[in-house]
Design a protein around this nucleic acid. Structure first.
Lengths: 193, 193
DNA sequence: GTCTATAACGTGATAGAC
DNA sequence: GTCTATCACGTTATAGAC
């Protein structure tokens, strides 16, 4: 591609901004973080940042989008089936215990974005729907294999598991002694046979 | 008591402010609501409001405290035992379906207040601890009555139930079609025998 | 294409008059 | 107990230099 060196610095700045914004949002939430803070941490003035991302909401969406690309959905829910998918979620909870900031970001944002006018509202609606769908599929597969305790409805179980993940995060953030992965694993264990 | 009529008008204003603040926080969250908004809704200027509650955080704590007195803890967790306490929680979820604003307030606040510096941090740490304690007691009572499925640890079950309530609220706020009470009741049902 | 300077406004909070 | 006036700061956004 021609003009690579022209956009090189710009691309680097963009990536720096995204990294810094992720950390800042994670520390203080979306509403609690100012564009000036992020810009200053990058060695920029805030209008310079707003050149790359016209609005604070745009920046937020870019941060969320990049995380999905790099780590979240890229692991590939579609390739995981049955028990393996549930185990993957337990594992995610375990790994999250080492990244308090990210957990704080998602906990704060998912609650904030509940309001229909929030910039990340559509993102979270879609995120939860697709997560519930994948987990429902996993429970259906377990059911077909006869590995699910009778009387457990896959769709309900999926909503419960997703809810459990969110709720355990709140309790863990308030008291890091609590073990998210353990409580999650115990729940899954109790549903299988 | 002497001097009652002196504080009468003041007490009325105080109550008006608390009612209005509850509604406003419920609509827009703590950070999303300005002291000016609340004051204007009360027909006051914002310094007048800050005469009654010196700080925005003080106002928040007063709102939370009054709710606990009037409706929450006053129902009396101490008087409820075993299954009755769990049923009461399911019922609370059912009643909450008619009060979106309050659910939004608590969901947003519990996530926000996760940060140690937040004005409501200590409040929520204590709130969760006492709730978990009460629920743990209920599960222990069920266990002693032989009503709890074997292999379920009361303390873990309590953390799970509290987490489930929080997580279901998020999903319900994002999609009001979902039935919080139903998913909660199904979970409890699956734990008992 | 990248950034500095600045505008225009809203915020929580305080001082002091009435 | 409530007001006006004001403060210092943070917010999004734009005009224009390099």
């Amino acid at each position: 591609m021609a003009g690579r060196e022209l956009s090189e610095r710009g691309a680097g700045t963009r990536a720096l901004i995204l990294d810094t914004a992720l950390a800042a949002f994670a520390e203080s939430g979306y509403r609690g973080t100012s564009v000036r803070d992020i810009a200053t941490r990058c060695g920029l003035t805030h209008p310079a940042l707003l050149y790359h991302f016209p609005t604070k909401a745009d920046l937020l969406m870019a941060v969320l989008g990049r995380r999905d690309d790099s780590e979240g959905r890229a692991v590939g829910f579609d390739e995981l089936h049955g028990r393996a998918l549930l185990d993957h979620l337990v594992d995610t909870a375990r790994r999250n215990s080492a990244r308090r900031g990210v957990v704080e970001l998602y906990a704060t944002l998912s609650a904030e974005s509940t309001e229909p006018g929030h910039p990340a509202h559509a993102y979270f609606v879609a995120r939860y729907a697709s997560l519930r769908e994948a987990v429902t599929r996993a429970y259906r597969e377990l059911e077909a294999d006869g590995a699910l305790r009778p009387g457990i409805a896959p769709a309900t179980a999926a909503r419960q598991l997703v809810a459990l993940m969110d709720g355990l995060q709140i309790q863990w953030l308030l008291d890091p002694e609590l073990d998210m992965a353990e409580a999650l694993a115990a729940h899954v264990e109790a549903q299988l046979r």
